[in-house]
């Protein structure tokens, strides 16, 4: 009998204990990771979120769909505390983030990775420095070690090592998106937000990214929230799909359920039809 167990064994035991504990402690079958209740957010007179309720379960992959400008990005930014709702509550692991102090936001956001819709790469840094940023700043990792991990993550999104020394201004739109994705997952966050991860990518690369998102959830146990307009991608990565319309979640269900639903809004959206209850404002207001 040796006193020391190997790290993998130790890790396994730890997760086993955690899982058993979770089984006994939670009455619900799905513990809730992020809870939004009655969230209201307006910009001036324009109401964007109008009493939004949404529960995001631990370890699930949730996809949010909905028309352009319905407030999908605003929802994610509210969870991160980048925007402050006027009303309602948002909790992450039970911690309230609406109107919370900078310290609380820092603690909560430390376990969240975010891919921004416009990638939001730091243009004063090279690509690998972008990807390694969270490792160096948040995890206090040495530069050399962080670069190694950054290059690994870049390889996972199909970017070769020579891209690492370029600046974001020298990249194509799809490459920027993938760098943003590598940056979001580099620190192995518990929660990952992807704002339109496959927009601007070719179909093959899109599928590579879909696999990566599925892996992040299935293998690494992360909780993922993905915004997308791409229904192929949504079907592939989602455990559940939620549809946002007029500031509320009007439908939520599994991929199987969405194929069978009779909800006219959802049917119109997934079929991409101009006819239906959702009216796009294509006429100028008089």
């Amino acid at each position: 009998m040796t006193e020391r167990k190997n790290p993998a064994q130790k890790e396994f035991n730890k997760t086993l204990v955690q899982k058993t504990m979770a089984l006994f402690s939670s009455k619900q079958p799905h513990p809730i990771k992020i809870k939004l209740s009655n969230v209201h957010k307006s910009f001036g007179k324009k109401v964007v979120l109008d009493g939004l309720d949404l529960d995001i379960r631990k370890g699930e992959s949730l996809v949010i769909i909905g028309g352009s400008g319905t407030g999908k990005s605003v929802t994610l930014k509210s969870i991160l505390g980048l925007l402050t709702p006027e009303e309602g509550s948002i909790t992450v692991d039970g911690v309230e983030v609406v109107n919370a102090s900078t310290k609380v936001h820092e603690q909560v956001n430390a376990q969240i990775g975010m891919l921004f819709q416009g990638a939001a790469l730091f243009d004063s840094m090279t690509v690998w420095e972008n990807v390694a940023f969270g490792l160096i700043q948040g995890h206090k990792m040495k530069k050399k070690e962080a670069k190694k991990i950054a290059l690994e993550k870049m390889a996972q999104v199909g970017l070769t090592a020579d891209v690492g020394d370029l600046y974001p201004a020298d990249l194509s739109g799809g490459m920027k998106k993938r760098v943003g994705l590598a940056r979001a997952i580099a620190t192995h966050p518990e929660i990952i937000f992807f704002d339109e991860p496959t927009t601007g990518l070719d179909p093959i690369m899109s599928d590579v990214i879909n696999d990566l998102i599925v892996d992040s959830v299935k293998k690494l146990g992360a909780t993922a929230v993905t915004i997308t307009h791409d229904m192929t991608s949504a079907r592939k990565i989602a455990d559940r799909i939620a549809m946002l319309y007029k500031g509320k979640i009007i439908w939520i269900g599994t991929v199987k359920e969405i194929e069978k639903t009779k909800n006219p809004y959802v049917v119109q959206f997934i079929n991409g039809s101009a006819q239906g209850p959702i009216q796009m404002a294509v006429k100028a207001d008089d």
């Binding site: 940023f133 940056r183 620190t187």
Partner: peptide, 14 residues
């Protein structure tokens, strides 16, 4: 305007 400041706060940096 390019959300780089927002990105900072999601990467453990004030």
């Amino acid at each position: 305007v390019t959300e780089q400041i927002d990105a900072l706060s999601t990467l453990s940096t004030n």
